[in-house]
């Protein structure tokens, strides 16, 4: 008999819930005796503005560390331009929604470089600790900060295992309408939620395929036919600090 574990029970429940919701996603209309019209949602279609986000999608990123080159910063530049944050030469205070990390194995010196951003965890510690609920996870897995109720306590920054969040240390100007930012609040990668909601890819992914090395794939982890799911099913991939059990939506290949 297999050993019962709380975690397995939790995962089973999550699967059942998902299947229920996925079932509900297939709209069925009985038109008459023997005639049934079934409408399947188009996975590629954009969400209508008045349509709620649901858990049938789980957005994720796959980053190929072999394709990503140390001298390329295309994803970082794209994110900065898209969302209106910039580096002012003050690494202690500048916001960095995405950054290039270089890791070196001290034994032999093997080096790799790749981007790290909010990992959009299934169990995000930042949302657990946020006292007001300003840090939240959408049903489709995107972790965001509600800028209206963030009180700037920075507990989420203490809790994030990926150092993915930044605090806005000084007054700002020239913000992008789709990426509101404000002094005294916390911010992080939004997975370009404004683009995703209209059916586009995040700016980093788009720029990486255009000007970079095509190292980033964005897609629905719940859709077995998506490119990201196929890659994950075919090649070994990993999550950063998978041991923490937060289940990031950002995966890495060849790392």
């Amino acid at each position: 008999m297999s050993k019962f574990s709380l975690k397995d029970a939790y995962i089973d429940k999550a699967r059942r819930d998902f299947l229920k919701k996925a079932g509900a996603g297939v709209a069925t209309t009985v038109l008459g005796a023997g005639i049934t019209l079934m409408a399947y949602p188009d996975p590629a279609a954009a969400r209508k503005p008045d349509e709620p986000v649901d858990a049938s999608k789980r957005w994720g990123l796959l980053i190929d560390a072999n394709k990503c080159k140390e001298d390329c910063n295309a994803c970082v530049t794209a994110c900065s331009q898209e969302n209106g944050w910039k580096l002012d030469g003050d690494p202690r205070h500048d916001s960095q929604w995405i950054r290039k990390l270089t890791i070196k194995n001290p034994q032999g010196g093997f080096t790799q470089s790749f981007p790290v951003m909010c990992q959009h965890c299934t169990n995000p510690p930042c949302t657990d600790v946020c006292p007001t609920g300003a840090s939240f996870k959408r049903a489709d897995g995107i972790v965001l900060v509600d800028k209206h109720i963030c009180i700037g306590c920075r507990y989420c920054m203490m809790a994030c295992p990926y150092k993915a969040r930044s605090f806005i240390h000084q007054p700002l100007e020239d913000q992008k309408p789709h990426a509101p930012r404000g002094k005294g609040t916390v911010e992080a990668c939004t997975l370009c939620v404004h683009r995703v909601d209209r059916g586009d890819q995040p700016a980093c992914v788009e720029r990486c395929s255009k000007d970079g090395n095509g190292a980033l794939i964005f897609g629905d982890l719940n859709d077995p036919n998506s490119e990201i799911s196929k890659q994950i099913a075919t090649y070994p991939t990993r999550q950063i600090r998978a041991d923490l059990g937060v289940d990031p939506g950002v995966r890495y290949k060849n790392l």
Binding site: L87, R99, L101, K104, K163
Partner: peptide, 9 residues
């Protein structure tokens, strides 16, 4: 691993 970045990792 030895880690470096522009974000003081």
């Amino acid at each position: 691993m030895e880690v470096t970045s522009s974000f003081q990792d």
